[in-house]
């Protein structure tokens, strides 16, 4: 494929782009005007807003691997971890490349929560949304030694014993919202104990300090299969293939379960043709065997929404997060 660039002149620079640059407060210098037909004509920069080895990193690298294996992106893809500030650094990098269709990134829970916590300069609504591919939901877990077999037993136990100690990662996070909502709807009292890392959260429960925790299936499945912890509930829309006996929260009559969106985004104000091109390619990606393997192995729930549907989803989830956290007093 020819790698031609048109010179950037005042004549070819459409007024729309100038307006956009002014609106986003960023220089138009990073934006190159090109023929939509020729997209993509350059190397791609793939930004991962978290460190290597995390859920977001593994998803991004799986996607890049699929794009390369199946020759879906005709040029080179440079993958870079830009971690820091719970995603603020990585997605901030996309913000500073507003309008550039050659920078992509993937989303996770912090995409919605970090702007609620800190002055990031962006919110989820600023970016160009390509598509939601899957959601990462939570398992509600109790230690095997507690002898609790199902959700009904748990709610009864929790209501009887008074405030129960439950844990999760962080305060301004999905974990807290889910714990608070479940307790409220099932009618028991909780003392929510926030943790910074998964290892300490899990040992806190195994040591007998916590009565229950929520965890992503990917990090808890090993212990569940080993029989050390009992899963009682899954917050996803459908039951997990790996745990067909664990009911969903909806089946037990609980509503408003939030989850982490795993999707693909472009910088704010990226051109429509780029977004459409990516939607077309990602439609192919989600059909590949490698992607299906990834979904199964990491116990994600497939949830595909393209373009505007993804935007609407993010808006709903974002509002939900904000309302819930405000209600619980976690953000002001």
């Amino acid at each position: 494929m020819p790698n031609t660039r048109r010179p950037l002149t005042a004549l070819t620079l459409p007024a729309a782009l100038a307006l956009l640059a002014a609106a986003t407060g960023c220089g138009a210098g990073t934006t190159l005007q090109e023929d939509p037909e020729e997209y993509p004509s350059q190397n791609l920069e793939w930004t991962i807003a978290f460190g290597p080895g995390g859920g977001n990193d593994i998803m991004s690298r799986t996607l890049v691997d699929i794009l390369n294996e199946h020759d879906l992106y005709p040029h080179d893809i440079a993958v870079e971890n830009r971690e820091g500030g719970s995603g603020a650094t990585g997605w901030g990098h996309l913000l500073s490349n507003s309008g550039d269709p050659y920078v992509v990134s993937t989303t996770s829970g912090s995409f919605l929560t970090t702007p609620l916590q800190a002055d990031t300069g962006w919110t989820h609504a600023d970016f160009t949304h390509v598509g939601l591919l899957a959601t990462d939901d939570l398992l509600f877990l109790v230690p095997e030694s507690a002898g609790i077999a199902d959700w009904a037993e748990w709610t009864e136990h929790a209501a009887d014993t008074g405030p129960v100690a439950v844990g999760g990662i962080g305060t301004v996070n999905v974990d807290f919202i889910v714990q608070a909502r479940l307790a409220e709807q099932a009618g028991y009292e909780i003392e929510y104990v926030p943790f910074n890392d998964e290892g300490q959260l899990q040992t806190a429960m195994s040591s007998g300090s916590l009565d229950a925790i929520v965890s992503n299936p990917g990090s808890a499945m090993g212990q569940v299969k080993g029989g050390d912890i009992t899963p009682l509930l899954f917050t996803g829309k459908e039951r997990l293939d790996a745990l067909p006996d664990v009911p969903t929260a909806a089946e037990e009559g609980h509503k408003g379960m939030v989850s982490m969106p795993r999707g693909l985004i472009l910088p704010p104000g990226a051109p429509d043709y780029a977004r459409d091109w990516w939607i077309g390619v990602m439609r192919k990606v989600v059909k590949t065997k490698e992607w299906r393997d990834y979904i199964t192995k990491n116990h994600l729930a497939e949830d595909i929404r393209w373009g505007d549907d993804f935007t609407a989803y993010l808006k709903d989830s974002g509002d939900e997060f904000e309302a819930s956290l405000r209600e619980q007093g976690a953000v002001k």
Binding site: G53, G54, D57, I58, M221, G222, Q223, K225, D228, N298
Partner: peptide, 12 residues
């Protein structure tokens, strides 16, 4: 993170 990246399920 590597365990999961290489397709292993960490756990007991």
């Amino acid at each position: 993170g590597g365990f999961m990246m290489w397709g292993l399920q960490p756990g007991p």
